[in-house]
């Protein structure tokens, strides 16, 4: 077997021209990983959110009859909670993907070291991983939206279409900073804190289940600082057709900033940790 000759018809190996070009080279890796692991995530990704919506939106929501003005323009509690659940689900998927799996890549299996021994740089590998997280957020949110459509909770079809890229943006706004946090962690013991003191309070108090005006002025002000509230509010105004474009623009800028700063921080943290 010839090992070194660059035989006829073979493209020589090369360095990628940009992080995006590098990330594209990892598409087959993530596709293979997903083919091997999707079964394990089906229930949590696709079934659990629907159980929530049935329990909270249909059965619990049946008791709630309130003025649409108090429900941010929703005509029923189900219509109010559905977009909130959608945005919260986008966040939840991210917490699963960017904690233990990242720790495994840099500490347990050390596959990250193998990846950056190839022509790929850390920025390429992080970008590819974020791309995979977006794929996971995208499939989960698409299925959720399709299942909710027959319930008649969406007022604006173009708003629903627009809410899809918004879910991807929410995913990135969480995934990139969380990637940076995981990259800095030495052991997995911090993850339980991240889930209990980070994800669960965000999930419950960022306006997904009730209007944050109910929280009282101080807590409401705090809730407005969280990325999930920006995501929930943006999603809700889109699907309910109650868009205030200037508020929407603030939401988008906030979420994009989280994503960009998070990505740069993640790459920097990993460069410090892996390249010494």
């Amino acid at each position: 077997m010839a090992t070194t000759d660059t035989a006829t018809g073979t493209t020589p190996s090369s360095a990628p021209r940009s992080p995006l070009a590098g990330a594209v080279r990892m598409a087959d890796y993530w596709a293979t990983v997903y083919r091997r692991t999707w079964k394990g995530s089906v229930i949590s990704s696709f079934v659990t959110p629907l159980l929530y919506i049935v329990a909270m939106g249909v059965f619990l929501g049946g008791f709630i009859q309130d003025d649409p003005a108090k429900l941010e323009g929703a005509t029923s509690y189900l219509a109010f909670v559905a977009p909130g659940m959608l945005a919260a689900q986008a966040m939840t998927v991210v917490f699963g993907e960017v904690t233990y799996p990242v720790m495994s890549m840099i500490k347990w299996q050390r596959t990250f070291y193998g990846m950056i021994a190839s022509p790929l740089n850390i920025a390429d590998v992080v970008l590819a991983h974020l791309g995979f997280v977006l794929f996971r957020v995208g499939t989960v949110c698409a299925v959720f939206t399709l299942v909710m459509a027959p319930f008649g909770v969406f007022e604006s079809w173009w708003g629903v279409l627009l809410s899809f890229p918004v879910q991807l943006l929410i995913g990135l706004a969480f995934a990139a900073p969380l990637y940076a946090i995981t990259a800095a962690m030495r052991s997995e013991s911090g993850f339980s804190l991240i889930f209990r003191l980070g994800m669960i309070p965000l999930f419950l108090f960022s306006g997904a289940f009730f209007p944050i005006s109910n929280l009282g002025p101080v807590m409401e002000w705090l809730a407005r600082l969280t990325p999930l509230w920006h995501g929930v509010d943006l999603t809700r105004m889109l699907v309910l057709g109650t868009v205030d474009w200037s508020t929407a623009a603030i939401h988008v800028v906030y979420l994009v900033t989280c994503a960009v700063v998070g990505y740069l921080l993640a790459v920097r943290t990993l460069e410090k940790r892996l390249i010494d």
Binding site: R25, A27, D28, V33, G114, L120
Partner: peptide, 21 residues
């Protein structure tokens, strides 16, 4: 630094793709 989630051949295949082949 092999990926234990993938099988033997997949480990080689995905790695080859990192080189732009």
């Amino acid at each position: 630094t092999l990926d234990t989630e993938l099988n033997v051949a997949d480990n080689l295949y995905v790695y080859g793709r990192y080189f732009g082949l």
